[in-house]
């Protein structure tokens, strides 16, 4: 690990200020990804800006039609939230299935989205629900936020403050965990929203989270697991690694989509 300057601001403005004043700064949320990356020397920032004392970044607000969750909200808090469960139960299912208890107690929604690991769970909820990411500079619609593996359209120093999820008619999330890491080998988020059916797949795409057209089309016609019988997803743009070849991932997308739909429909 290289040496860096550590700051721990109390407000979001101080955090963005500290970031822009530094030569090459990085924010730190729960440190679940950042710390290992620093230890391995994969990132060598001059400054680390710790967000843990920035009070106004954490918290959950539920209004009539949306759930807004602060960037520093821990996965465990989302998983245990009765309010979130009442509004979008699939989101608590998703948060409760991330990593293990230690990871859920440290890891944050903002950190997960900024990192955009192609196997992370939250990106599928953001894309699947058509959420809006609010930063210190602007509001970014889900369809414009992600930009391929480990990449987003956040600008340098741009701070995620919260994410607003429109409350869908129903939604479900089914994850097939990687047998070793337990990240998503394939995770499918399905939602029936006012604007139509949205489906987002994580863990499988070479460019990170994506919307599978075939599955969305079938579920738009009939929001049931049976509607997916015989539907196939092309394997061309899917990842192949030692745990799963693209054809297995393609198969799992349909299987997990069915399970997510059943969950959304209260059938399992």
């Amino acid at each position: 690990m290289e040496e860096f300057t550590y700051t721990r601001p109390a407000t979001a403005d101080d955090a963005t200020g500290a970031h822009s004043a530094a030569e090459d700064a990085m924010y730190m949320a729960g440190g679940q990804t950042l710390i290992p990356v620093l230890k391995q020397g994969l990132a060598m920032p001059t400054d680390v800006v710790d967000l843990n004392r920035v009070g106004d970044l954490a918290g959950i607000q539920v209004t009539g039609d949306a759930v807004t969750i602060g960037a520093m909200t821990r996965h465990a808090v989302v998983a245990a939230s009765a309010e979130v469960k009442g509004a979008i139960p699939a989101l608590t299912v998703l948060a409760g299935g991330i990593g293990d208890a230690q990871v859920r107690n440290r890891g944050t929604m903002g950190g997960s989205l900024a990192n955009n690991d192609p196997s992370a769970d939250y990106p599928s909820a953001v894309l699947g629900l058509g959420a809006t990411v609010t930063t210190n500079q602007r509001e970014i619609p889900a369809d414009e936020f992600f930009d391929g593996m480990f990449a987003t359209n956040l600008e340098d120093g741009e701070l995620i403050k919260s994410v607003t999820y429109p409350i869908p008619e129903k939604a479900g999330y089914a994850k097939f965990p990687n047998p070793a890491s337990r990240y998503a080998l394939v995770g499918v988020f399905v939602a029936k929203t006012a604007g139509g059916v949205r489906v987002a797949v994580t863990g499988a795409g070479q460019d990170g989270v994506f919307r599978p057209a075939e599955v969305e089309a079938a579920l738009s016609a009939d929001f049931s697991a049976a509607a997916l019988d015989g539907v196939t997803v092309p394997a061309d743009d899917l990842m192949t690694d030692m745990h799963a070849a693209a054809d297995y991932r393609a198969h799992l997308i349909v299987v997990m989509a069915k399970r997510a739909v059943n969950q959304a429909n209260g059938q399992g």
Partner: peptide, 26 residues
């Protein structure tokens, strides 16, 4: 069901060099 030490057959690099890829039972 899980554990497997895998070397890349061409380079001899260890593919399963961390707990992210070497599966241990929980």
């Amino acid at each position: 069901f899980l554990e497997d030490i895998v070397y890349d057959p061409d380079t001899g690099q260890l593919v399963t060099g961390s707990l992210m890829d070497y599966g241990l039972p929980h």
